[in-house]
Amino acid sequence: MDRISHFLFTVVGLIFRHPVTGATVIPILPSGEIVLVCRKDNGKWGLPGGIVNWGEEVSEAAKRELWEETGLNLIQIRRLVGVYSKRDRDPRLHSISILIAANVDGHFNIKDNLEVSEVKAFKVDKIPFGNLAHDHEEQIKDFLAEKTILA
């Protein structure tokens, strides 16, 4: 029984004590505006994104999350901006965010009404810094500074 207990403890530890991987997108419209979503849980603006599903590639997760949260289509990935893994970057859990910048198009149409209350395009000088969720302010500033980050 001791070996079985040890095995179960190890498996539970592996499942619940590891960071969750997510894909986050900086959606850039043809106008150059950046699209943000207003989160229902805290009323702050943020980048669209979410957890990568089992068997799903990061690029697929980015496309899916963008579409679910904004209704927009991912046309072309511009670049990998960074990988953000600080343990306190998301107050809900330890998550790793893989951030990409992408050209997008389409019309705003929120599919995920449980998480998102509004979608809006911002000119770079009108981004609501100081009212962004998680570490999205840092992420957007890194993108604007043309940095590639592993943090």
Rank of each mutant, 00 (worst) to 15 (best):
K120Y: 09
D135N: 13
G49T: 06
R87A: 14
N113F: 11
F108V: 06
P128H: 05
L93D: 15
K123C: 11
T21L: 14
I15P: 00
P27L: 04
E33H: 12
K44Q: 13
L114V: 11
S85A: 15
I100Q: 00
G13A: 04
L47N: 10
I51N: 06
I15L: 13
F143W: 14
A101D: 10
G13T: 08
E146W: 10
S97P: 00
N42Y: 07
K126C: 08
D105K: 13
G49A: 02
D135P: 00
V83A: 09
S117P: 07
I75E: 02
I110Q: 06
H136R: 03
G46S: 14
P48Q: 05
Q76S: 13
L8E: 13
I110A: 06
E137A: 08
D90G: 01
V104Y: 01
P128S: 04
R78V: 12
F122V: 01
H107I: 13
I149W: 01
H94F: 09
V83R: 07
Y84A: 02
K86W: 07
F7T: 10
P19E: 09
C38V: 06
G55W: 05
R92P: 05
L47G: 02
I4E: 12
L72T: 03
S59R: 12
A145W: 07
G82D: 01
R79Y: 03
N53L: 14
P48L: 08
W54F: 14
I28L: 11
F7D: 07
S97H: 10
G50L: 04
G130T: 04
T21G: 01
I100Y: 15
V12C: 09
G50C: 05
G55A: 08
I98A: 03
K120E: 12
K44C: 05
L80W: 07
T70H: 02
G50I: 04
P19M: 07
A102T: 05
I77E: 10
L99G: 00
Q76H: 11
I110D: 02
N53H: 12
V12F: 14
G22V: 06
L99W: 03
L144A: 09
A145H: 12
A62I: 00
L132A: 07
I96Q: 01
S85R: 13
T21D: 10
G106N: 07
N103W: 05
L66E: 01
E137D: 13
